[in-house]
């Protein structure tokens, strides 16, 4: 599976949110067919709530992990 990493460090919500939604929309077919996983790197804490919550409402699976100086949000095809 291909992994596309988008570094959004320095951006704050809702700019990060719109960026993430745009990337998800652009890659929806690849994500749903499990050929692509999106990884957002952000240092904005609000984004760790808004992005996963909306992505899950859109039917995707998400994980959020805290790394040393940033957060890693993964968006992938949800298991049925």
């Amino acid at each position: 599976m291909e992994i596309k990493e988008i570094d959004m460090r320095g951006q704050i919500c809702p700019s990060t949110f719109i960026t993430a939604l745009r990337e998800i929309n652009l890659n929806k077919n690849e994500i749903k067919s499990e050929t692509l996983k999106l990884v957002f790197i952000t240092d904005n804490r609000d984004s760790t709530v808004t992005i996963p919550e909306t992505a899950e409402n859109m039917g995707y699976g998400t994980t959020v992990t805290k790394e040393e100086h940033h957060y890693r949000i993964e968006i992938f095809a949800a298991r049925q």
Binding site: S15, I18, L21, G59
Partner: peptide, 30 residues
Amino acid sequence: TLPIRPEELDDDTLIGIDPIGVVAESFVQI
């Protein structure tokens, strides 16, 4: 989420990234 602050997105960028289109397409998926 929060509203967009003018200093976050200037007018040209706002039109360029088409946030209404982005959110609308997300709503279609939701």
